[in-house]
Write a protein that binds this DNA or RNA. Structure first.
Lengths: 264, 264
DNA sequence: CGAATTGTTGATTCCCCTCAAACTGGGTGG
DNA sequence: CCACCCAGTTTGAGGGGAATCAACAATTCG
């Protein structure tokens, strides 16, 4: 595992002025194009499991690239659905609103993960996506992708798998919200994060959280205070060390057992 | 609205021998075939929003039909993914299991709704589906459907929309589990049920629940006792009348306000 | 009829929310 | 440069909502 990358990732983030809620109305379209075939994320991202001839087709689409600064909103709930977005770097938060104005975080996306698929049903985005740090995404025109997939079973499967993966992701969050207590939720969250970071070549045991306690709490269906308390409890149990957003998992096995606290 | 149908639906169910957990290993394949074009559910189901020429294509597939008795399992978590299923009649419960054995209901499906799409991602069903009453489904070979969709944008969109709709369904359940109290959850559940029944030509205000208190509780992330108590509380508030599984919604507006109890 | 299943209701416990105060590090402006 | 502010975090005290444990009624089935 590349140590330099690890350190770049786990080094403290010096958070500059947080540019909250800056919509990207005048899209800074970056003319640079990206090729899937030469992307270091190809094993995780859209081209995962696709034959090399089909990757060629993806290359032909020449996805646009877009930089998104911390705090900027990539797309908003209610925006017309046109693109899906593959994260190239950085982390995003996805959230949606209840009719009465309550808001909830319903996902965090990192490199290689695809956002925006909930817009297919009604042609309108059902959630908003905000960058939690300076980030970059591939902009994939959905209609273009499905056109491309026409008459090509490989690409067609890609789209299906992406959506189905999103369904599975939500399944596990539902299980979490429906049948776990605070400790189990946080443990599940951390283990999931750890595993995703590991798949991306980062340390599975030491990392920096890109999201606040409030965002974690919203995602896990608990208050920010309970998140903080649970972190402290885990530290006391020597399961991990926590300093603000810097996390070091000490006892992964112990964290996994935290799932089974309730199960006697 | 056809009264006879309504009464058939809202009449007390005399629950016969509940055949729990009977897998359909030897599938009783019904040779009868179904045509989408002449199906009374075509506005709700797969053919929704599809041009008549594309419906012709669906007809050509001649979906198989399968009867499922109450308590029988249509497919199990872990089964190889081959088919998706459109409910023709009856109600299904979908549930999945945590690694430690805890189980959770994650959906109820009624006529015109499509089950099984969570199997696309890994080629394996991620949840199980059980009939809550004698039921009938259309058996749709997924590979055949996507083959058919090849080179046909209308059918291709069908599959995308079905999956995206499933994502939206889970979104709303997550919001519910993440940020609502017991009263809001049950109110949301009842209003959702009411609206779906109305769309199917049944009464929006009077119906029979096909699921137990325990199943509702599992779905809504609360215990069966709390479900029962909340029903009683709603009755005391004259929002509805409840007698076991028979429900009569008196004050739909009041139930909607139950969402806003928390929001002052 | 007794056994089993489902639903209702009561008493008690406890987990987590709410409210509140204090601390931290960084950025800013005098 | 230092005082101040601010957002984010930690920690404490107290209360409430839902889980847990338990008893009982109603219905169905063997």
């Amino acid at each position: 595992m590349p140590v330099a990358v690890l350190e770049a990732f786990t080094a403290p983030v010096h958070i500059a002025l947080r540019q909250q809620d800056i919509p990207l109305t005048s899209a800074p379209v970056v003319p640079l194009r990206v090729l899937c075939s030469s992307c270091h994320l190809r094993e995780l991202c859209v081209p995962c499991g696709v034959s090399s001839s089909d990757i060629q087709r993806l290359d032909d689409m020449k996805f646009g690239r877009r930089r998104v600064k911390m705090g900027q909103i990539l797309y908003r709930e209610g925006d017309r659905f046109q693109f899906i977005y593959a994260v190239r770097s950085g982390t995003f938060r996805s959230n949606l609103m209840l009719a009465d104005g309550r808001e909830q975080v319903n996902g965090f996306y990192m490199a290689g993960e695809v956002m925006g698929l909930d817009g297919v049903a009604n042609g309108v985005h059902a959630s908003s996506a905000t960058a939690l740090e300076d980030a970059e995404v591939c902009v994939i025109p959905y209609a273009h992708l499905t056109d491309m997939a026409m008459g090509n079973s490989g690409l067609q499967q890609v789209v299906g798998r992406l959506m189905s993966r999103e369904i599975l992701r939500e399944h596990s969050l539902m299980m979490l919200l429906g049948s776990m207590n605070a400790e189990e939720r946080l443990a599940a969250f951390l283990l999931n994060l750890s595993q995703r970071l590991k798949a991306r070549g980062y340390s599975a045991s030491e990392f920096h959280l890109r999201m606040s306690r409030a965002e974690i709490g919203s995602y896990l269906g608990m208050t920010l205070e309970t998140v903080s308390r649970t972190f402290s409890a885990f530290q006391q149990l020597r399961l991990l060390e926590v300093d603000k957003r810097h996390i070091r998992l000490i006892d992964l096995e112990g964290l996994r057992r935290a799932f089974e606290v309730r199960l006697h």
